[in-house]
Amino acid sequence: MFEATFNQASILKQVLEATKDLVNDANWDCSAEGIALQAMDSSHVSLVSLSLRGDELASYRCENQISLGINMNTMTKILKCAENNDRTIIRADDDADVMVFVFESEGRDKTSKYEMKLMDIDSEHLGIPEQEYSATVQMSSKEFSRIVRDLSTIGENVEITVDKEGITFGAKGESGSGTVSLKSNPSVDEGSSNITIDLTDSVKLNFALRYLTFFTKAAPLSDNVSLSLSADVPLMVEYAIGDVGFIRYYLAPKIDD
């Protein structure tokens, strides 16, 4: 028996918005510790890793490990039937072929119940090595979304450079080019870009903006985002989900042909 209660539907809604464009179907792996999901996009270029800790949810129980195969678009549609503030319970019996959703209104005067068919999903689980990154940049998630959106109007790829001066995003296209630089600034003045950079080595890497655009769908989950980079390894983009967990994205770089 698996059952997780969220005080508000909004966290689940936002998690689905942050994953559904990248993966169609995914196994939600539920254990005594919590809920984990790891899935690659169909082209095997990016990966999303979600972790929600059971002990930080309103209530949580999971006696036996269970893998729930979920069509993310269907789950998104069902969650749209909940108001943001509805208390939300998701439940599945061991060996169940459905997941049950219960939405309770704030005043507890309305209860909705939906069942969603589960799927058998063959997914390839990747082992992600522990990595010491050369550069980790913490910045506003809104600012990161803005930069990705702006540079997508110029080109398909972004070159990210991190050095002791700060971080620079650059794009080139047929019609022109653009760069956005943010200075590392430890002061917390109003209006400053307010980024922190933890740097051991300068790095310069290229990435497809198309995937970064998918990642920025997680911005409503957190005011901040962290970008971790090392030469010749995938970028890691992390959004914390309050005290409950995180959503991490990995993106393989564009490399010299």
């Binding site: 690659m40 082209s43 095997h44 270029v45 990016s46 990966l47 390839e124 689980h125 990747l126 082992g127 992600i128 090595p129 790829n157 290229n206 497809a208 390894v233 995938p234 990995y250 393989a252 770089p253 564009k254 490399i255 010299d256 042909d257």
Partner: peptide, 14 residues
């Protein structure tokens, strides 16, 4: 020209 790397080049199958 740069080409898109795949994740399999970096992460092994678990």
């Amino acid at each position: 020209a740069k080409k898109q790397a795949k994740l399999f080049s970096f992460f092994g199958k678990a």
